[in-house]
Computed example of a mutant assay.
Amino acid sequence: MLILTAEDIKKVFNMKDAIEADKEAFEIYSKGQSEVPLRTNIKVEKYNGSSLFMPGYVKQIDSLGIKIVSVFPENIKKGLPAVPAKMILLDGKTGDVCSIMDGTYLTKLRTGASAGAATDVLARKDSKIGALIGTGGQAFCQLEALLVTRDLDVVKVYSRNREKVLNFVKNANAKLSSYNTKIVAAETSDEAIEDADVITVVTTSTKPVFDGRKIKKGAHINGVGSFMEHMQEIDEHTIINCDKAFVDSKEAVLNESGDFIIPIKKGLISKEKVNGELGEVIGKVLKGRETDEEITLFKSVGIAVQDVVTAYKIYKRALEKGIGQNIEL
């Protein structure tokens, strides 16, 4: 059994690799070639937390696994990750565990890659201005995914905590300098999304974090933060008025995402507002962006097929390069 830390993963797998893995995973899912039950969410109210169990099976790579990811916001006060996770990968031929890897970084990587995949497929090719709302644990990989998929001149970053924004921008400019993109702090969400060609929102907010009336024609929006029915980071104007809305999984988003569930319950939209899954666009079953004026939206709650496919590719790459620690139980 191969044990892989976050640093091990970084040695063998980069964001570009992860984006390609997510594209493959989304297409596999939309073709019905995987078994991915809805996640099981166990609430731990005593500590204001919840633990999610995400199993999946992908026949064509003979691999299955389960990611256990917890959301314990109070951990930050203890100096611990707010979203700790572990990924358990099984050999589909034997059913035995072949690897345990850091699921916290895996989640950041494949979640960033999901927005990267959507941006690559749906955003205008000539996109030059990006916006990032949210500076939590997922934000850095989200930013990197934007830079990998589009040659952006500037990305404007906003969150309610000004100090966090400034620290994030300083760190991002240092670590991502090779992309030659200017990363700047925005004073407001309006300023962040003004003239933005690509907007990524990565928060767990229960109230919309930007005004959809300020979005320019031709923009693409990634909503990747909210993953429970009471969370709503994207405003209803955006959901109602976007020209095309794609998701990672219809079943998952319509059962878990407040961004869609809340306006559906209000009667503002129907389930048919979702044009389809990103995997259907990647597989050329559906058309994505058709004009430069369309406003496109991608909503993701995260599905286990992403974890299984990405973890499998990381595991294989680590074996090839002799990275990680082998143990016997």
Rank of each mutant, 00 (worst) to 15 (best):
L176E: 09
E74H: 09
D235S: 04
V58W: 00
G103C: 05
G92A: 03
K284Y: 11
D17A: 15
S177H: 14
T200I: 06
N326A: 15
R289I: 05
F210M: 10
T104Q: 15
I240C: 01
L109K: 02
L106C: 03
K182L: 01
A196Y: 05
E45N: 07
D8F: 06
N173G: 09
I76Q: 08
I234V: 13
V36Y: 00
I100M: 15
Y57M: 11
T200V: 07
N75G: 07
K244C: 10
E294T: 04
K128I: 00
F227C: 07
V44S: 08
P37S: 12
S30P: 00
I66P: 00
E35G: 02
D243T: 06
G134D: 02
V224M: 10
Y47R: 14
N171T: 13
Q306T: 06
G32Y: 03
K67V: 12
D197P: 00
K31A: 14
H237I: 04
E194V: 00
E163V: 12
L278M: 11
E45K: 14
P73F: 07
E293D: 14
K273M: 06
K156M: 06
H237A: 04
S127F: 01
L254Q: 09
A18N: 01
P37M: 15
T5Q: 04
E236R: 14
K10W: 07
T104W: 08
D248T: 02
L268C: 02
P37F: 15
Y47S: 09
T296R: 02
F298I: 03
V285Y: 13
Q60Y: 13
E256D: 14
L38S: 02
R162W: 01
E256L: 13
I133M: 11
D243C: 08
L319R: 13
L176K: 06
P84H: 09
G302N: 11
K16Q: 14
